[in-house]
Design a protein around this nucleic acid. Structure first.
Length: 415
RNA sequence: GCGAGCGUAGCUCAGCUGGUUAGAGCACCGGAUUGUGAUUCCGGGGGUCGUGGGUUCAAGUCCCAUCGCUCGCCCCA
């Protein structure tokens, strides 16, 4: 019985939901193309090492969320938990560093082994964009702008907030990290259990702890801004000015840190309070150290990803069902004519449904349920004269149309 | 991995302090209606009451375990 259920955290995507996914993916691809991004696809699994190296051994994704297995050849394989690592690997293995800068858009399933809840699943879908090979802060501005426009195109604007922060360059970040470790170590025993673990693994994470015993300690923790060198400060200023130029509203959140180790400089998150505990809708940042860390050349990168399921819960206007035209043979002797007519009309590009069961009333009802926009009745005396009855199902008006000019007459129902 | 709530038809649910053969609405299928969407009427298919064990003369109902779902923690899209 158990095998007849989908694996925990996975779902079948039926047409209604699939239309929504497609709308979101297509909208993302379309908006990204205006920025010059082209759609790509990388494998949904990689050698586990690809993710281990890029995500950092200390990240939660690697320590407990990777969906991993060994294949028949004994290779350790992991279903991708996110998209950037695969793109970085592609850059290296495809020798694409010769062709920088590169702008890639992708969409597809991602996998994380964790307890499902609202807006979080073991197999979920993301769309994302990566801009590789541009070290200037203009790239950060463009990527945030792209994210904002994708959300705007999906009409996801209510209760949406953009938060940004800077993690500085590698040197600044390392210096701040040291300072944080030093500071929190002094008060180690006062920290929450979770934060004590963070102190060893990912001290920056303590800053956005929700535990109340951490609060006052966080209040008095050293400010990141004090550890930013001039280059890092300048970089962040340019990003902020760019957002202001574009009238993209944002707030700086010094507590905003990324869970993944390879980020530097800009980190940003579009959040909503409409999804319960999962507020993050679209998030990303700069990852200048990633490609090099994987063993490639030093290549700058800025990217973001958005969860399609989460976006779907925020899209107000659901995509419409495509409306077919129904062909209804009046009696079964007209079945052959019906199937032939359907074939011809489909060849001309129309969406046709054939009704071959039940009486007229039943067939019309079924056409109605399929939200058909029109019905074509084939049979009777008008057919012998070479005509078909075409009924507009919205207005209820009906007229006789010569069979030979059906295609022309139905042109009005073309999308 | 941890915590809480919930599992009865495809969906929403009823089923009393345990007591005949487990019900309703919606949906679906057929008929009234062999050339027209509504309404109405009649009929029909559908359930191992999540699963397993226990208590009992008797369990959908009580107890235990287990699986699943949902929400939250951690973390993240």
């Amino acid at each position: 019985m158990r095998v007849l259920q989908p694996v925990r955290g996975t779902h079948d995507i039926l047409p209604e939901e699939f239309r929504l996914h497609r709308l979101i993916g297509d909208t993302g691809a379309m908006v990204a193309s205006r920025f010059g991004f082209e759609e790509i696809s990388t494998p949904i699994f990689e050698f586990s090492e690809v993710f281990k190296r890029t995500l950092g051994d200390s990240s939660d994704i690697v320590t407990k969320e990777m969906y991993s297995f060994e294949d028949k050849g004994g290779d350790k394989i992991t279903l991708r938990p996110e998209g950037t690592a695969g793109v970085a690997r592609m850059l290296i293995s495809g020798g694409l560093a010769q062709k920088l800068p590169l702008k890639y858009f992708y969409r597809g399933p991602m996998f994380r082994y964790e307890r499902p809840q609202k807006g979080r699943y073991r197999q979920f879908h993301q769309l994302g964009a990566e801009l590789l090979g541009v070290s200037e802060p203009q790239a950060d501005i463009e990527m945030i702008a792209l994210g904002a426009l994708v959300l705007e195109a999906l009409a996801i604007t209510a209760n949406l907030k953009l938060q940004i922060n800077t993690l500085g360059n590698m040197e600044s970040r390392a210096a701040y990290r040291e300072a944080l470790i030093k500071y929190f170590s002094t008060y180690r025993s006062s920290l929450s259990v979770e934060s004590q673990m963070r102190l060893d693994r990912n001290p920056l994470r303590i800053l956005d702890s929700k535990e109340k015993e951490d609060r006052s300690l966080i209040e008095n923790a050293p400010e990141f801004s004090l550890y930013l060198d001039r280059e890092s400060q300048k970089f962040f200023e340019i990003v902020c000015e760019g957002l202001e130029l574009l009238s993209i509203e944002y707030s700086v959140n010094q507590r905003l840190v990324r869970g993944l180790d390879y980020y530097s400089h800009t980190a940003f998150e579009f959040t909503t309070d409409e999804l319960g505990a999962q507020g993050t809708v679209l998030a990303g940042g700069r990852y200048d150290g990633l490609v090099e860390q994987m063993g490639g050349a030093k290549v700058s990168g800025v990217g973001w990803a958005a969860g399609i399921e989460r976006l779907g819960m925020l899209v107000e206007k659901k995509p419409e069902v495509p409306r077919p035209i129904a062909i209804i043979p009046v009696t079964h002797v007209h079945n052959e004519l019906a199937i032939l007519t359907a074939y011809k009309l489909r060849r001309s590009g129309l969406q046709i449904e054939l009704a071959y069961r039940g009486n007229m009333s039943k067939r019309l009802k079924r056409a109605n349920r399929l939200s058909a926009c029109a019905a074509i009745f084939l049979g009777g005396d008008e057919m012998e004269r070479g005509f078909a009855c075409v009924r507009d199902l919205d207005s209820g008006t009906q007229m006789e149309v010569p069979l030979v000019s059906l295609v022309d007459h139905l042109g009005r129902y073309r999308l």
